[in-house]
Design a protein around this nucleic acid. Structure first.
Lengths: 340, 340
DNA sequence: AATTGTGCTGATTGCGCTATCAGATAGCCC
DNA sequence: GGGCTATCTGATAGCGCAATCAGCACAATT
């Protein structure tokens, strides 16, 4: 027997096993798998056969270590359960997975401290790129990112100081436009209902509404903020409260479509006529908003496009190594439906 | 100058850098980070300071290679855009991330060939465990899994030949029960509308409906299968077709809640009275089904519980190293709403 | 006082792979 | 035929970390 090795190998099939079976050097196997053109046909076939016979799977951890390159792209989203998330995830996958990247997702729950934790965890996997929400980041987060010097994408919201690539929507403007739209329709007592309003795009929407109200000489004080989570039932609760508080309200903008949906369901129950007694408008989820009765006027936001554009810009940056700042603002439009 | 190294290091801060700054050996740093109790207080503090000063982040690829252990858990889901997915993902994250694991998700789109590709890609990251849909796997998939000898969870559907841990729902029985429920309510001409019916749980539901129809001496031929994707609009299209084809239909079970939703929306438009003219029942998505008017009778399926139970069983297997087969079937119940 | 622990630390080695470079072989030109 | 690419192959070293084990100081035991 040979004198015991200091450490036993993991038992996996390795490059060396394939090389031995094929009767070549392990470097040739490595090449045959990654750059087949550089290997002669004969050897390549022998190697492919050996790979198939052994069911060899490369160990990417070892590869990443040796080449300091990884095919992992880390994605942090604000939440995993929103319409926007779904659209963006599908778009990112659609572009990046065919290009050979593996995506890892986590959620920050609109909390920059939590985001920092996630960044710390994800960067340990040496990802090829990092995708985050286009919101404020902690200074530690920025330091980590700088240390790793990798391509970074900030998504969904536009930011004043982009790290690298920033693809998003001007949420402030979208709320402004929506408010203006209601103004044009003749509404004057326009309220705003939201929650989580200190975070991300919701804060921007609130500000956009306020600005529009002031610019058009309307009173901007009719504001209700739910304290708990965003959900149908919160919307339902808020309806009667709001009406009791401001009986003269003729329209309301909801920061989230879930809340708007809750409002409508409750209005139907209570016999409040939409839009005759109260017009409702909101953002984002066309599927939900079209399902409701009456259907809901929304600002349609092209999240799929946000994801696609971001992924494509990132791919460019990965290929060319170019780290110039890229900022792209995508449009939106008010989609009129029955609720206004 | 020293004679140039054969390869330059990646520029990252490494354990050795931290060690040098703290004036200790790198092995001590490694210990201080992973098993702080084994390091004396003085050194530990010096090391912590050095880590903070340098912003050191461990390289998990290197760690995984050295220890042949990884904190990655690979998850393959049938689809990323379904209610079930959302619930399961949140439940898995809720249990496994606090335990220190990092989840990677991909989708197989109900295609076992695609699943095989995903398994091949994911196993290259040497995950600590693999979570897949509890459906049939290709023989190559099984071979890969066997070679890696890692804990495996099959989720959502029960399988006849579990690889290891299998937590799921008896979808066949759920459809049987739902059909029986309609029978008890007095319906006799019960149809089934679906799509994707050759895959996963939808096939089981179809079979469950058929069995129940036969067992209760009802005619089991009123079946409509949409060819395209599952969506509201497909449901809308199918309604009038179905009614034209089988005017005597008094109830219909939809394999997917999206289709049921489409049916209801279209029925409202066309003036078809639900449930007077046609009762509708379906599965899964309580949020959607409660939002619709009339609300939809469903089989409620506790996907969150599926995810949680699976994650906990997996955690046990990871900790104890136990590879005994575990099969867990979770219950379901018919939730009566206005549509029946 | 000699022995045996006990607690802590660091040198060395190897995980499986790829970068690098040195050979080997074949083809080509003058 | 000798030199010279062009093309292919493999030996070696090292990526950053953790397993292993040896060493060392000091306490406890007899």
């Amino acid at each position: 027997m040979s004198q015991g090795k200091k450490r036993k190998n993991s038992g996996r099939v390795t490059l060396a096993d394939v090389a031995k079976l094929a009767g070549v050097g392990s470097m040739t196997v490595s090449r045959a798998l990654r750059t087949p053109d550089l290997v002669s046909t004969g050897l390549r076939e022998k190697i492919d056969a050996a790979v198939a016979q052994l069911g060899y799977l490369p160990n990417k951890a070892a590869g990443a270590l040796a080449s300091s390159q990884s095919d992992i792209i880390a994605v942090i989203l604000p939440s995993l359960t929103e319409f926007a998330t779904n659209e963006i995830v599908l778009a990112l996958k659609g572009v990046l997975e065919p290009a050979g990247y593996q995506l890892i997702f986590t959620a920050s729950n609109y909390d920059s401290q939590e985001e920092e934790k996630q960044v710390r965890a994800l960067l340990q996997h040496s990802p090829a790129a990092l995708i985050l929400p286009g919101t404020a980041h902690t200074s530690q987060t920025l330091k980590y990112i700088e240390n790793m010097s990798l391509p970074v994408v900030e998504l969904s919201a536009l930011t004043l100081t982009p790290v690298h690539i920033n693809v998003g929507i001007d949420h402030h403007a979208s709320a402004y436009q929506l408010t203006k739209f209601l103004y044009m329709k003749g509404y004057r007592q326009i309220g705003f209902i939201g929650a989580h309003t200190n975070f991300g795009r919701f804060a921007m929407r609130l500000a956009g509404w306020q600005k529009a109200m002031i610019d058009h000489d309307m009173a901007s004080h009719r504001l209700v903020l739910g304290l708990s989570e965003v959900s149908f039932s919160v919307g339902a609760e808020l309806l009667m409260d709001t009406l009791a508080r401001w009986p003269d309200l003729d329209a309301v903008i909801c920061g989230h479509s879930e809340i708007a949906a809750g409002l409508i369901l409750e209005a139907n129950k209570q016999g409040v006529k939409i839009p005759e007694q109260l017009a409702i408008a909101t953002f984002e989820d066309p599927n939900l908003c079209n399902t409701l009765q009456p259907s809901l006027t929304t600002v349609d936001i092209p999240y799929a496009e946000v994801g696609r554009e971001a992924a494509e810009a990132l791919l460019q940056a990965l290929i060319t190594g170019n780290r110039d700042k890229v900022v792209k603002s995508l449009g939106f439009r008010v989609k009129t439906r029955a609720s206004t």
